[in-house]
């Protein structure tokens, strides 16, 4: 039963992956402009031979359908192509940037999930109270402000005026002499992590507040009250576990989105992560790299969903994976 379920799950995941691959391929090739014209506009015009050689080298002289078939075959084999910009295998480029992205995205995602859930649970449990309403309004305000605005505000206050943190980058200029030190990187990561955390707390907060709110009217909560439990004990022991159930998928997807990086925040802080890479690749029409980044995102979302589904039985005894699917 379980093996059959996993097989079916794997098949559908593969299908989703192929559909996503095809769609991104089509969309990216519909984009106007190409690499040569955006990075070396004169070369393309003045030296047609060089342009031709470039096209041949990357197989751009072949028909689109041929390119598509080659791409599919190569991806399945584990070859995700070469980046125009870096001249390196796409996977190698992504892997290098992913490390930097995780340095800021991992702490900010974990922090925003923890803060969002804790505040959301309290707010939802005390729904309608003054605390709840002021927190809710505050969160609506925070959520309405885009991440790049927080980023610029933090740079202005803590970087420029107070001069507490660097304005951008991932290491000081001394790193050239003494090498990259962890403390130095952490100092550079502080502001981006803060900006990312602030901008992603409200999303988790709304969901958790709503989810907790729905448990307050449940009959088992009344039973818990009739036992003589304190309100906070009821929240912790009875409501929270039930309110967590709808959050599992959300958390899994947020963790998956971690690897996508943040285009805005990484660009503003010149943080050499996947978000900045995505922006760069898009700007110069580095199609294999873009395609690779999107495929990576697809894979992560697929894995996150599977992970969420497999972890449901761990927190909800009523769910059995592989039955009634």
């Amino acid at each position: 039963m379980k093996a059959e379920y996993l097989m079916r799950r794997a098949f559908y995941s593969f299908l989703a992956f192929m559909v996503s691959l095809t769609l991104t391929f089509v969309l990216l090739h519909l984009m106007p402009g190409d690499y040569l014209h955006s990075i070396l506009p004169y070369l393309a015009e003045k030296n047609p031979d060089a342009a031709r050689m470039f096209r041949e080298q990357f197989g751009l002289n072949r028909s689109i359908s041929e390119q598509y078939l080659l791409y599919v075959v190569n991806v399945v084999r584990g070859n995700w192509g070469y980046s125009f910009l870096y001249g390196l295998p796409v996977l190698a480029v992504i892997e290098e940037k992913l490390r930097w992205t995780l340095v800021i995205l991992f702490p900010s995602t974990v922090l925003s999930i923890l803060i969002g859930m804790a505040v959301g649970a309290y707010s939802g449990w005390r729904n309608g109270s003054k605390t709840d309403l002021s927190v809710l309004n505050f969160m609506i305000f925070v959520g309405a402000v885009p991440s790049y605005w927080w980023a610029m505000l933090l740079i202005l206050i803590f970087g420029f005026h107070l001069n507490l943190f660097p304005l951008g980058g991932y290491a000081s200029i001394e790193a050239l002499d003494v090498g990259v030190r962890i403390s130095d990187v952490l100092r550079h990561a502080a502001l981006p992590v803060t900006a990312l955390t602030i901008s992603s707390v409200p999303g988790t907060y709304y969901l958790m507040r709503n989810s907790t709110l729905q448990t307050t009217g449940e009959e088992y909560v009344l039973t818990a009250r009739s036992k003589g439990l304190r309100e906070m004990e009821i929240l912790r022991h009875h409501a929270l576990k039930n309110a967590m159930l709808p959050m599992v998928t959300v958390i899994a997807l947020e963790l998956a989105q971690m690897i996508m990086g943040s285009v805005f925040v990484e660009t503003i802080f010149s943080w050499p992560g996947l978000g900045l890479l995505t922006f760069e690749a898009l700007r110069v029409r580095d199609l294999p790299l873009l395609q690779g980044i999107f495929l990576m995102d697809t894979l992560m979302v697929i894995f996150a969903n599977i992970a969420a589904d497999l972890s449901y039985p761990l927190i909800d005894p009523r769910v059995k994976v592989g039955e009634n699917v």
Binding site: E219, Y220, T223, S226, K227, G228, N242, L245, D316
Partner: peptide
């Protein structure tokens, strides 16, 4: 509540499912 006066509710959803 509970130790002096207890309530027995009608059952289907009165127990915590998790």
């Amino acid at each position: 509540r509970g130790r002096e006066i207890s309530v027995i509710f009608q059952s289907p959803n009165s127990l915590n499912p998790v």
